[in-house]
């Protein structure tokens, strides 16, 4: 969780592109997700915060653990954009984390892991390594 932003982005990209079909874990129905809100899934021991941005199937997944507030709460933050960057605000102390990169916007040295997410036949799947 202390990996720098670039490292995270690389891992994330590799994750989504290289992911073998077996590595995708099905977590819930797409309809279980509320528009403009998050939900948390347990995937291989990891807490993954999944966000549905808008009414459509635009999904993002980052870790649920807020490294600043030190609690598993990011899925319960408000989704929006800051300076054009899609992000979630931690419900604890309101720092923003990019949904695409996991980067904390206020504190450059902080970021959270990003995971792969997709919808297959109405089911949401997550890829973690």
């Amino acid at each position: 969780m202390t990996a720098g932003p670039s490292a995270v982005r690389v891992v994330a990209e590799e994750e989504t592109t290289r992911a073998h079909v077996d590595e995708w874990v099905e977590v819930c129905a797409f309809d279980d997700l509320l528009p403009w809100y998050g939900a948390c899934a347990l995937v291989r021991g990891r807490q993954v915060a999944i966000f549905r941005v808008g009414e459509g199937q635009d999904l993002y997944a980052i870790d649920n653990y807020d490294p600043i507030g030190r609690a598993n709460v990011l899925s319960r933050g408000i989704v929006g954009d800051i300076g054009g960057e899609l992000c979630v605000a931690s419900p604890l102390y309101k720092q923003h984390f990019s949904l695409k990169t996991g980067q904390c916007i206020e504190q450059k040295e902080v970021s959270v892991p990003v995971y792969g997410v997709r919808v297959v036949d109405g089911r949401v799947q997550i890829a973690v390594s």
Binding site: L34, W36, Y37, G69, A71, V73, R76, I78, P91, L92
Partner: peptide, 22 residues
């Protein structure tokens, strides 16, 4: 209500006050 839920701060979303440990 569906169109308002995502606007609420976590406290209003869960109708309870969030504590430091979640």
């Amino acid at each position: 209500k569906k169109e308002h839920a995502g606007l609420q701060d976590t406290n209003d979303h869960y109708l309870a006050n969030l504590q430091k440990d979640g």
